[in-house]
Design a protein around this nucleic acid. Structure first.
Lengths: 106, 106
DNA sequence: CCACTATATCCCTTGACACGTATATACGCT
DNA sequence: AGCGTATATACGTGTCAAGGGATATAGTGG
C-alpha cells in the first residue's frame, strides 16, 4: 500500500475521511456513524494512519482520530495539471491540441 | 469498475492520462512512449473509455485518444471539502482560494 | 483479393485486498 | 485484583482485477 490512490480507492476509507473532515472522532463513533464492524474500522484506520492521512491522540481508552493534510495535497497536486482542461474554455484547448508537435497527418 | 477512484488507482492508467494531458495520442504512440505491451494499452484504454475519462476518434486504422474532463472534475469535487484543511495552515494558498469568483471571506 | 498495420478481445494464472469471526491488548473504575 | 469498555490484530476465505500471450477484427494500399 504505497500510493495515496490505493488508500482512497476504498469506499469505507473515503467515508471515514469525509467524516473526519467535519471533526475528529473516536473509533467507536466512527463505527456507530458509518455502521461498520469495529475491526473493519480499526483496519482501515491502520491503513490511513500508515499512509499519513490521519493521526490519533490517546484519550483514556479511546483514540481520537483527526485528518492530516499532506496525502490529500498529494492527490490535489496530481490533479493540478488536468485542471486547465475544464477551467479554460474547450475551444482554446482544442486549438492547442491541433497544433501538437509530433502530430503528423497522413 | 464503477467509481472514478477505481480507474485512477492503476499506475499505468494514470500514466496514460498524464500523457494525454499534453496532447492526444494514438494507441501505438502510447505503447511506445510508456513501454507497455499493446494489449495492455488497449485494455486500459477500454477502462478509461467506459468510465468517460477519454474518447477516441478514428483516423484510418488508428484511434486517437484524448481526455474528457468530467470524471476528473468528479475527483476534484470529492477533494474540495478537504481543501480548507490545508488552506487553513497555508496563508499563501488561502489567498489563492480567495481569488475564486464566489470567494466569501469569513 | 492479399499482405500489412493498427487495435481490440479472449483465456488463464496470479496476487492483492476486504470482510467476518475470533481473539488479544490496553485502560480505568470500584 | 477483576470486570467492563475500547481498540487492535490474526486467520481463513472469496472476489476481482492486472498481466502475458495468442488470436481476432478492421482498415489501407497494391
Amino acid at each position: 500500500m504505497e500510493s495515496v490512490f490505493e488508500v482512497i480507492v476504498e469506499p469505507n476509507r473515503r467515508a471515514i475521511l469525509s467524516l473526519l473532515a467535519s471533526s475528529q472522532q473516536s473509533v467507536g463513533e466512527i463505527e456507530r456513524l458509518l455502521h461498520m464492524p469495529q475491526p473493519t474500522v480499526s483496519k482501515h484506520l491502520r491503513v490511513l494512519r500508515d499512509a499519513g492521512f490521519v493521526e490519533a491522540t490517546v484519550d483514556a481508552q479511546r483514540r481520537l482520530y483527526r485528518l492530516r493534510p499532506e496525502p490529500l495535497q498529494e492527490v490535489d497536486a496530481w490533479l493540478a495539471p488536468f485542471r486547465r482542461f475544464w477551467s479554460a474554455h474547450l475551444d482554446a484547448l482544442e486549438r492547442h491540441l491541433d497544433r501538437m508537435p509530433k502530430g503528423r497527418k497522413k
